[in-house]
Nucleic acid binder design. Structure first.
Lengths: 130, 130
DNA sequence: TCTTGATCCTGTAGCGACTACAGAAGTTAT
DNA sequence: ATAACTTCTGTAGTCGCTACAGGATCAAGA
C-alpha cells in the first residue's frame, strides 16, 4: 500500500489530479490509514495508470471513465470500446484538418508581412470589412 | 448606431461574448442610450469583426487584444505582428504533429479490435503494467 | 527532545473563453 | 392591452485540471 505521493509517482498522475478523480467519482475512494491518509493498493495504482494512458491518448475524461468501467466489468464489450475509439479518432482527424486549414490561412496572411513596412499587410487584411 | 443584437449579427460575435469582451476590457465600453442599452457604432462593429477573425484564426484572446491595440495605435508595428503570428503558426504546427502522433497510436490500438472478441485487445494493451 | 523539512489533509479559487441561465425592465407588433 | 421580443445585470456552469492557504502529521538529524 502506498501513500498518494508514491501512487502519483508510479502512475504519472499528479497528486491533485488523483484527488480530483476521487472527488469526481472517476475512481473509487481509497481506504484511509488511521492518520486519515489515503492508501493505494497496487490495483488502485494500475487503475490510475490506465487513466493516464487514456488521457494521454486524448480521450475525454468521461470516455476514460467509460473505458475504465468496461475494463472492470465482468465482460469486456469490445464493440463499445471500438465505437468509442473510432469516434475519437474521427474527432482527432477533424481537428487535424481544421488546424491545417488554419495554418494555411495564417501562412497566407503573413506572407507579405516583412519587418519595416509602414502599414502592416496582415493587419489590413484582417481589418477589411467584407 | 446598433443595439447589441444587430452588432452581434453584423460581426458574428455572440451577444454574451460581446458583453464578456466588454467586462474583460478587450473592447472599450460602448455608449449607452437613455434606456441603458448599449449602442454600437460602425467602428465598434468593425472592431468586433476584427476580433472574430483573429479568434477564428485561433489566436488566444490575449494575442487578439494585442493585435487589436496594434491596429488602433498610431503606428502599426509590423514586426510585432509578424512575431506574434509566427509563434502562433509554430504552435499550430506543434499541435498538428501531436494529434498525428495520437492518431497513429489510436489506429494501432484499434487495429486488432474486432467486434465479437471475448477479451478486448485494446483494453488489454491499455492495461499492461509497464 | 527539539527542530527541520517533507508529506499529507480539506477547502476554495483560478485558468481560458465563453455559455447559460434567472429575473427584471424595456420595446415593438397586433 | 397583451404578447412576444430584446436587452439589462449578475451569477454559475463548462473541462480538466492546477494552485494555493492553513493546518496536521511524520521521519530524520542534532
Amino acid at each position: 500500500m502506498f501513500e498518494i505521493g508514491e501512487a502519483s509517482r508510479q502512475s504519472g498522475v499528479g497528486i491533485e489530479t488523483i484527488r480530483y478523480y476521487e472527488r469526481e467519482g472517476i475512481v473509487p475512494k481509497p481506504v484511509r490509514a488511521t492518520n486519515n491518509r489515503r492508501m493505494f493498493s497496487a490495483h488502485d495504482v494500475g487503475r490510475l495508470r490506465f487513466l493516464k494512458k487514456c488521457r494521454d491518448l486524448g480521450f475525454p475524461l468521461a470516455d476514460t471513465k467509460t473505458l475504465l468501467s468496461l475494463t472492470e466489468g465482468d465482460e469486456e464489450d469490445c464493440r463499445s470500446v471500438k465505437e468509442l475509439a473510432e469516434l475519437h479518432i474521427f474527432n482527432v482527424r477533424e481537428k487535424i484538418n481544421e488546424l491545417k486549414r488554419l495554418e494555411a490561412a495564417l501562412n497566407e496572411l503573413t506572407a507579405n508581412c516583412d519587418s519595416g513596412n509602414v502599414s502592416c499587410p496582415m493587419l489590413s487584411k484582417l481589418r477589411t470589412d467584407q
